[in-house]
């Protein structure tokens, strides 16, 4: 009699549980009502099952966002873990939507779930992608603008992981500044 030994397939656990949020711009409702918690995941396999299933960012309607945040952190400035923090912001041209948007967003997610920032990964809150007609944006949110060492390490590592050329400069903006920005645009607290 042949004995079949079935190797139980063990999922690979992530350091953190993450939540995927989706925001669809419906002007008739307050913005909080447009924000939906889609699902949570905490293994590599569940991440891929989700990512391979949902619509690519480049195919979302203008005005939509995806956000992936650590479980318990809401993708908004007001959240306790975000209000003293800021974001490394990648602004893309319209042409980049078809070429690089999906690639940059996936790389951002792999940085998050893979804990790519060593011990500074503790400062990571999440990431947001805004699909907009005037130019898409991707950002990684961190929890403390004053933790310069963490912010700069995260920015440098992120820029490398995205494969951005040295001459391309990315900026880190405090949410408090973004929230109160006048028309002039937001000043960068750090750049790499």
């Amino acid at each position: 009699k042949e004995i079949l030994i079935v190797q139980p397939y063990m999922k690979h656990p992530l350091q953190n549980r993450w939540t995927l949020w989706f925001y669809k711009n419906d002007k008739n409702k307050p913005w909080q009502a447009n924000l939906r918690l889609v699902t949570k995941f905490d293994t590599v396999e569940d991440f891929w099952a989700l990512y391979n299933h949902i619509q690519l960012a480049s195919r979302l309607m203008s005005g939509c966002d995806y956000a992936v945040f650590k479980d318990g952190i809401e993708p908004m400035w007001e959240d306790n873990r975000n209000k003293c923090g800021g974001r490394w912001l990648i602004t893309l041209s319209k042409q980049q939507r078809m070429l690089e948007l999906d690639q940059y967003w996936l790389e951002t997610l792999l940085c998050l779930i893979g804990e790519a920032f060593d011990d500074y990964s503790n400062d990571i809150c999440g990431a947001v992608i805004n699909v907009r007609a005037k130019g898409d944006k991707i950002a990684i949110w961190t929890c403390d603008t004053e933790n310069e060492e963490a912010v700069l390490h995260i920015g440098k590592t992120y820029k490398e992981r995205l494969g951005l050329p040295m001459k391309v400069v990315i900026g880190y903006q405090a949410h408090a500044d973004t929230a109160t920005k006048s028309g002039l645009g937001v000043k960068n607290k750090f750049v790499v």
């Binding site: 397939y9 690979h12 656990p13 992530l14 350091q15 590599v44 396999e45 891929w48 391979n52 790389e107 792999l110 779930i113 893979g114 804990e115 790519a116 060593d118 011990d119 990964s121 992981r161």
Partner: peptide
């Protein structure tokens, strides 16, 4: 404490595993 880290190569290899 320890931290569970996955590099890009490993994560991409897992993309189409069963």
């Amino acid at each position: 404490g320890t931290r569970i880290i996955y590099d890009r190569k490993f994560l991409m290899e897992c993309r189409h595993s069963p």
